[in-house]
Design a binder for these strands. Structure first.
Lengths: 198, 198
DNA sequence: AATCAGCTTGTGCGAGTGACCAAGGCATGC
DNA sequence: GCATGCCTTGGTCACTCGCACAAGCTGATT
């Protein structure tokens, strides 16, 4: 008996996923406050009444969609960091994945939209901060092992740099990872005995 | 004859300014795509028909309002940079002014909203890129004088860091200028003879 | 006094909005 | 057969939206 026939609950879950996916796409394309229930339903090829059946409100759908995408990215990124054998290699692979984002791609836009929405909604901000703390602590641990001073602050700055670069990249085409890598590497200056500036 | 009585054209200009100011406030408060002609007119204490008299469309008003605020900030920032006598002092005063922004204040939000709007509108992006180039070139010149390697790239990264920190600050309360200053100072590592890593 | 240009108002239109709900479908358990 | 949930549809509600436009206002010019 290979796959059991989908139950009503199964189909419900699938519609839920379609709605979440459609919402993330539209947040990126049109901006958070320009997403409508009708637009989401149309993109998901679903009646618009379903939006309010599966979610309490349009805003609840948007928040869950945005947080879900961020969480997925956080999972991938932490896995990438943990798979690297050295801090150098971790930075290299982070820079490499950075090249996948142009600043105008859906993921970059969704991230910025989410930060912006969170800046106006305390609860969303708490949830987002929780996700970011996980990445930052993981990164800080790695930096600490490599002797980078102030690992917590350095990790926070590194994460901020990534999002800042995404913001600026469309306006500054020179911001390639090749050009920026050597500069960022200075942030990882390690404390070696007797190397202090007089 | 001290102040000549305001002409009709004078009053028109003043209404225009009120509309621009109201638009910037509302972009920050509610988000770019949630600003309405009625909202702007109400905030400016003006009939809503005036919006379309003074501006071709709502979007034209929003773009002019956003670019105007960014340009004003660029002017202030470049003046601040040029008044500093050393790169160290320039970084200090830049970090100091950074403390004035919480990430949820109107200016931070307006900047992010503008980047986002520009990412979806090529013409707006060109205008924004022009403004940013001025700041970046000025900063790069100063870095170059101080012997910082890759001044152009370093300047671009520094500007990106500032906006990234604004994005992350509400989620990471530890991102004070005091905590972040020492980390950022590593970016200004100067090339001194014989200081290369073996 | 007549004319004129620039500024302002209020109203109206068609379109789109979030939320809600009665009605029906449909596989499951009895 | 029948009832029980869960899912889905399609329509309606009251409301807001951007934009256009006729009409009126006011001070300067002729």
């Amino acid at each position: 008996m290979p796959p059991p026939p989908p139950t009503a609950a199964d189909r419900g879950r699938e519609v839920r996923q379609r709605l979440l996916r459609a919402a993330t796409e539209l947040i990126a394309e049109r901006g958070w406050s320009a997403v409508s229930t009708r637009g989401v339903a149309e993109r998901a090829e679903v009646g618009q009444g379903l939006v309010h059946y599966h979610f309490a409100s349009l805003d609840a759908l948007l928040q869950q969609a945005a947080l879900g995408t961020v969480e997925e990215f956080v999972r991938e990124f932490t896995a990438l960091m943990e798979s690297a054998v050295s801090t150098e290699e971790a930075l290299d692979s982070a820079l490499g994945s950075l090249d996948g984002f142009s600043g105008t791609d859906p993921i970059s836009l969704l991230f910025t939209e989410t930060y912006l929405a969170a800046a106006r909604d305390e609860e969303l901000m708490r949830a987002l901060a929780g996700l970011l703390t996980r990445v930052r602590d993981g990164l800080a641990g790695r930096l600490s092992d490599s002797g980078v001073p102030q690992p917590q602050e350095t990790a926070a700055v590194l994460l901020a740099v990534v999002d800042g670069l995404m913001l600026h990249r469309p306006a500054s085409p020179s911001l390639t990872s090749a050009a920026v890598g050597p500069v960022l590497r200075r942030l990882l200056t390690t404390t070696t005995p007797g190397s202090e500036t007089p």
